[in-house]
Computed example of a mutant assay.
Amino acid sequence: MLSSPSSPSHSSIAARLRAAGCVFAEDEARLLMSAAATPADLDDMVERRSAGSPLEHVLGWAEFCGLRIAVGPGVFVPRQRTEHLVRQAAALAPEHAVAVDLCCGSGALGAALAAHADIAELHAADIDPTAVRYARRNLPRHAHIHQGDLYDPLPARLRGRVHVLMANVPYVPTGEIALLPAEARLHEPATALDGGLDGLDVLRRVAAEAPAWLAPGGCLLVETSRRQAATATGVMSRAGLTPRVAASDDPPATVVIARRP
């Protein structure tokens, strides 16, 4: 943390952030002051945050499942609600599990699962090259990281062997993207947010191919909104999977878990 006589005070930084509309200005000021190496760095960070950049992009990391996940401009920031999906996945993972983090973004889900479950083989894939670069920073060294559209880049040898398939697909309906906070709408990739007309276009594609990749008894886990859950379970059922909904109230989160018979 900066402590030289020329360093701005916590109160002055918090005041700048508060004037820019940051609700948790005091907490953010402490984080920024801890992360900055010089007063010039701090000024630049406060300026970026005041201009609307996500706090996590400015800091260079996001806290997720007790880990610091490297993030930055152009990559989706993992949400705390998605920790619920990882907890469900960890509870379902058998010993020496084969796991896939599809639509991996920064690799946060795969990194967290590897830290909390016995994962023998971990694969992650995303279509966005920026996301893949961050995934390479965040995932364990033994993880296999692929760039491409959904299952396309995965090795064929994984077919029928995956015990845990996590797919944090985009699920915001296209017509609701404009309603998102500016931090997400302006600073995160549209491919990580826009789920099509009803928000479930990518989920449908993931579910359709999931049975071919899952091991018998293996599970697909996908986050949705609560109002989308019934439609999502129908999609899973039609794909030949057996779905159930796992909801959390704190923080609010809805995960559809679909098992291959």
Rank of each mutant, 00 (worst) to 15 (best):
D44I: 15
P78G: 09
A35W: 15
G52L: 15
D152N: 08
M45H: 08
A131N: 01
A90K: 14
P78V: 14
I145Y: 01
E63V: 04
V77I: 15
A117P: 03
L92H: 02
L31R: 03
A124E: 09
G107K: 12
A51D: 15
R87Q: 05
L139I: 08
E95I: 09
L32Q: 04
R137N: 10
A108G: 07
A125I: 13
A35H: 13
A112R: 15
A120V: 09
R136Y: 06
D128C: 06
M33T: 12
R48S: 13
L85G: 00
A89L: 10
A93N: 12
A120I: 11
L109Y: 03
R137M: 14
A156E: 14
L113H: 05
E63G: 04
A135K: 04
P78W: 15
D44F: 14
V58K: 13
P140I: 07
S53G: 00
A143R: 12
A37S: 09
T130P: 04
R81L: 11
R141I: 03
V71M: 05
G52Y: 15
P54I: 09
M33A: 04
D41I: 15
A37R: 13
H144W: 03
A125G: 05
A135N: 03
H146P: 14
A114I: 11
S34N: 11
I119E: 07
P78A: 11
G148W: 14
A40I: 03
A40K: 00
I127A: 09
A135V: 11
A125F: 15
V132T: 06
R141C: 02
H116W: 00
S34G: 07
A97N: 04
V58L: 13
V100K: 15
I145S: 00
L31N: 00
R157K: 00
A135M: 06
E47T: 13
V86H: 08
R79Q: 10
G107P: 10
G74L: 07
I145T: 05
P140Q: 04
A124C: 04
I127C: 07
R79Y: 14
G74F: 10
H116K: 00
P153R: 14
R81G: 04
A70S: 14
L67F: 03
Q147F: 05
V75N: 05
R68T: 07
N138H: 02
P140F: 10
A117L: 06
G110S: 08
I119W: 13
E121P: 01
A99N: 11
C103N: 02
H96Q: 06
D152Y: 11
S50Q: 07
Y134E: 11
R79D: 08
V58F: 13
S53V: 08
A36E: 11
G72S: 11
A135S: 03
A125S: 10
L102Y: 09
A90G: 11
E95T: 08
E63P: 01
A36Q: 12
C103G: 01
L55I: 08
D152E: 13
P155F: 15
E47V: 12
L59A: 05
D149F: 12
A115T: 02
I145A: 01
L59I: 05
A112N: 14
G72T: 04
V77L: 11
L122W: 08
V58H: 10
D128M: 05
T82R: 07
N138C: 02
L92M: 01
L32A: 06
H144L: 01
L55G: 03
L85N: 00
R133T: 07
I69S: 03
A70F: 12
G148V: 13
L122Q: 06
R81I: 12
I127E: 06
